[in-house]
């Protein structure tokens, strides 16, 4: 594995080789200087790999001001190889793909997405807030170019696409996996399923129906009471795709740029209009909206559940109210 990654870094110098690295006691996706930095046995990263397709801040076009203003579209992308993406994040990228590439395809997203190679790795030590085992997102059969599973002394690699196959053949030393190695992979995956501390008391298919009948539930008010409206939950979410659009003018006042940046429905002014009216003016409404987006709205629009159970929101939430699993279980119980 080390050889493979070092070879990629060396031979594919024109490309961005990104992987999971340790950062203090947490993990992040970042550019790899060498294979030694790569951590494949991690629980979860602070931010999901979504940032490589929908950056925190992205220029959409540049403009020149004056008597004859002019515009110049900006869509930049560097070929990127992402190493160590967990299955739940791959499922989340599949949802982002549905949002940005089906209805009104988004040029900025598509360009970045097209130039990305995804090398996944099975999550063998889930974080304490994750509930992927309950959402069928602990493993995936699609959405990757290559998928690695650590079986102790080596990795089993599943090939997802021709692009992945080519990369593997060119840069890695591989051989056909034996039956016992494949059995080892199944064993590792099965063992990991038993490691999840949080579970849903229902199947993922039941969630939209549960929410259908839960609109007036007191759970939303109770749960949202301690909410700080800080937006941490939506900022770390791999399926949150909302953004704000703003202009920035240069100091010289003769040019500037329009950019978009992450925004979130849990922030107070998200649904406010110029006249001052705010269509989700209290935290109960915003909390409920987020839960419905995760469990119902995105499913209805794109056929995929808006939560992959990664647990990042629950880890980030200071008020300890953000986990969709907790709310869905409470609604089911009430």
């Amino acid at each position: 594995m080390i050889n493979f990654v070092d070879t990629l870094i060396e031979k594919k110098a024109a490309e961005e080789i990104v992987g999971v690295k340790a950062s203090d006691s947490k993990y992040i996706f970042g550019k790899l200087a060498n294979a030694g930095e790569l951590c494949l046995n991690y629980d979860v990263t602070l931010l999901p790999p979504k940032k490589y397709f929908l950056p925190q801040r992205e220029t959409v076009f540049k403009f020149k001001l004056g008597d004859k203003p002019s515009l110049e579209p900006v869509a930049e992308a560097k070929s990127t190889i992402l190493i160590g993406v967990h299955p739940y994040d791959i499922k989340a990228i599949e949802l982002c793909d549905a949002v940005f590439t089906t209805i009104n395809p988004d040029p900025n997203y598509l360009l970045k997405r097209d130039k990305a190679t995804i090398i996944g790795t099975d999550c063998l030590s889930p974080n304490p807030k994750a509930f992927c085992a309950s959402l069928d997102t602990a493993t995936t059969e699609s959405g990757f170019d290559l998928m690695l599973t650590d079986i102790g002394d080596s990795y089993v690699v599943a090939i997802g696409t021709a692009k992945g196959d080519k990369l593997l053949k060119k840069y890695a030393k591989t051989r056909e996996a034996t039956q016992s190695e494949l059995a080892g992979r199944d064993g590792q995956r099965k063992k990991a399923l038993g490691e999840y501390k949080v579970s849903l008391n229902m199947s993922p298919e039941e969630i939209p129906g549960l929410l259908e009948v839960s609109w007036g539930s007191p759970v939303f008010k109770e749960k949202s009471e301690p909410c700080l409206s800080c937006g941490s939950c939506v900022m770390v979410c791999p399926t949150c795709v909302c953004f704000d659009v703003q202009d920035d003018v240069a100091f010289t006042l003769d040019k500037g740029e329009r950019y978009r940046q992450w925004d979130g429905c849990m922030l107070v002014d998200f649904a406010k209009v110029a006249t001052g009216e705010n269509f989700r003016d209290d935290k109960e409404k915003r909390f409920r909206h987020r839960m419905y987006r995760k469990g119902k709205y995105l499913q209805e629009r794109y056929g995929k559940l808006g939560c992959v159970g990664c647990g990042r929101c629950a880890l980030a939430c200071l008020a300890q109210i953000a986990s969709p699993a907790e709310t869905f279980n409470l609604l089911k119980a009430s």
């Binding site: 949002v99 209805i103 009104n104 704000d244 659009v245 978009r260 998200f270 649904a271 269509f279 419905y292």
Partner: peptide, 19 residues
């Protein structure tokens, strides 16, 4: 209806009412 339609193309989320 009036809403804060920022992107106009069904992506940014600001104008969403339910689904």
């Amino acid at each position: 209806l009036e809403r804060r339609m920022k992107c106009g193309v069904g992506k940014c989320g600001h104008c969403q009412i339910n689904n």
